[in-house]
Design a protein around this nucleic acid. Structure first.
Lengths: 250, 250
DNA sequence: CGGACCCTTGACGACTTTCAACGTGTGTGG
DNA sequence: CCACACACGTTGAAAGTCGTCAAGGGTCCG
């Protein structure tokens, strides 16, 4: 059950035993450094759905890696509306964008019950100094965060709503498959339509209509937040901007 | 003249003498490390307007900092169209998003005659290992890149074309003022309407019309790429999404 | 049972895109 | 020197898509 996994994740203190080590982006290399690292990583915390991990404006003292559960980060855009900046899956680093300005620029919320690994910046930097390979990993993790953000911009560059949604779903599918290690035919969305719409820069109505169109076209099965990928090929096609009209057949 | 400055920038080999040191984001801290760093930084190159600095798919061996001249980075979006991801001013780090995947994900072009400082990754990492403060700076630079990308997303989240353009102009103004160290009343755009439109995810026609509307509203003076900020207050207001209608007075 | 929340669906209008034409400046070649 | 092509920017009119406003259904919970 989920509770079992949660218990396991919470009890683990040592990074060397971490279930997520293989996919932990800031993964540490040498065993002895792992030990040292463990001493500094704070005890794992669990968060309930909707709970806030950190808040905009707080000084950054730690970075975070989700062990279980999807997170969202959102910021107050210049027009005063909330803007979802990203969704963060287990193993993905959070908070890095804050260290440029020393304070968090966004709020982070758990979308589901979650377990979080908190790494103090001081521990991160001393570990990086001691161990060039870890430093290298850290830089790579930063680069990956940047790449993710660029993907978000690319997503927003898709003009048509259905293309945007399709590209988003393909991305979610890939992430889920990377975590599961196998092909998936269904997607469970951790976020509601509101967060989804904000991330895609669309209204919830448009998102809902697009899902319905994909359903009517036989591409997707839609039951609330649970989606079934019925025609992977056509979904991929839409994500590439092929089928301008959602329901149009090839 | 510009040529004089170019000559100066090209002749400088030592980071310690660098004119841009105060604003070089990956600025190095201690003098002796500066010396060592200089030995590894490649001789500065100059690029003509439109010349390519690096290409998508190339393996990353160096990061780059513009010494003079604005650059653009653009990628091939999944729909096959070119998408401008960012504009990079002197002192800003380029290429970091590539190191996550070991290859450049974008092309970088000089928009004007430019001088570039090339820092091999190996030099970067050894310097960071030796000197914790430099490592800290490097991480901060990475964070700043990430923050810039988030700003881009925030920009794209502005629904109305005039709000997007206004927010972009405010950003350009701020960057120019940071470089100049004083308030500016005019903006010289290094990029053409096509790159601008791509960055803003609008068509060039819409960008052009928006500029015209801002001109007619008495907010902006427009002469091709040269803009005069006539009503700073109202421009800021639009960037915050206040005036939904561009020409509407307060 | 009522209410809150989330998601869906419909109709209308506004905005941007698209298509098209025009003007300007620059560089090339006659 | 002029003609011409070409790139770039502007403007106009028409069409399409998404946002807005509004209403309704479903589920969960008190």
């Amino acid at each position: 059950m989920e509770t079992r996994l949660f218990q396991t994740l919470l009890e683990q203190r040592a990074c060397s035993d971490c279930v997520l080590k293989p996919m932990c982006k800031p993964a540490i290399v040498k065993p002895d450094e792992l030990e040292r690292m463990s001493d500094h990583v704070l005890p794992r915390r669990s968060l309930g759905a909707g709970e806030r991990l950190y808040a905009r404006g707080q000084p950054v003292r730690s970075l975070f890696v989700s062990q279980a559960g999807v997170f969202k980060t959102e910021t107050l855009a210049s027009d005063g509306k909330l803007q979802v900046l990203g969704f963060h899956f287990p193993g993905e680093l959070m908070g890095l964008e804050a260290i440029g300005g020393r304070r968090f620029r966004a709020d982070a919320f758990a979308l589901e019950p979650a377990v979080i690994c908190e790494i103090p910046l001081t521990a991160l930097e001393t570990a990086a100094s001691r161990q060039p390979e870890f430093q290298h990993h850290l830089l790579q993790a930063a680069g990956s965060c940047l790449a993710d953000q660029q993907d978000h911009v690319e997503l927003l560059a898709m003009r048509q709503a259905d293309e945007r949604v399709a590209l988003f779903l393909v991305g979610m599918l890939e992430r889920a498959e990377r975590l599961a290690g196998k092909e998936e035919a269904s997607i469970h969305l951790a976020m509601g339509r509101t967060d989804l719409a904000s991330y895609l820069c669309l209204t919830i109505e448009t998102v809902s209509r697009t899902f319905s169109a994909l359903r009517d076209a036989g591409i997707l099965g839609v039951q609330g937040r649970h989606l079934a990928v019925l025609d992977r090929q056509r979904l991929l096609g839409m994500a590439k901007g092929d089928a301008a009209k959602g329901a149009k057949r090839a």
